[in-house]
Amino acid sequence: MTIKWLMGLGVLGTGWLTLLASVMLLSSDAPAALVPLATADFIDALPDHISITDTTALGTVLVSDDADFVAQLYRAGAVVVLPAGLMGCAPLT
Rank of each mutant, 00 (worst) to 15 (best):
H49T: 03
T56Y: 10
L12P: 01
L26C: 01
I50V: 12
P83W: 07
L92I: 12
M87K: 09
A67K: 11
L58E: 12
D68N: 10
M24K: 02
L92A: 09
D44R: 12
F42R: 11
I43K: 14
T93H: 05
L20I: 12
D65M: 06
L82W: 10
P36F: 06
A84K: 08
A90Q: 07
V11H: 03
A30C: 09
T93M: 06
Y74W: 12
T53P: 02
M87Q: 11
T2H: 15
D66I: 00
T60D: 07
P31S: 05
V23I: 15
G15L: 14
I50M: 04
P91V: 04
D41C: 03
V79T: 15
A90Y: 05
L37T: 02
L9S: 08
P47F: 01
T56A: 06
T2L: 14
L19P: 01
D66H: 15
A32C: 10
P31H: 09
I3Q: 07
I43S: 04
D48E: 15
T39M: 01
I50S: 05
V11K: 03
G8H: 06
A40K: 08
T18E: 14
A78Q: 14
T93I: 09
C89L: 01
V63H: 03
V70E: 04
A78Y: 11
L26Y: 13
D54E: 15
M1S: 13
G88Q: 05
L20D: 02
T60N: 07
G59V: 02
L17A: 09
L9R: 03
L26N: 08
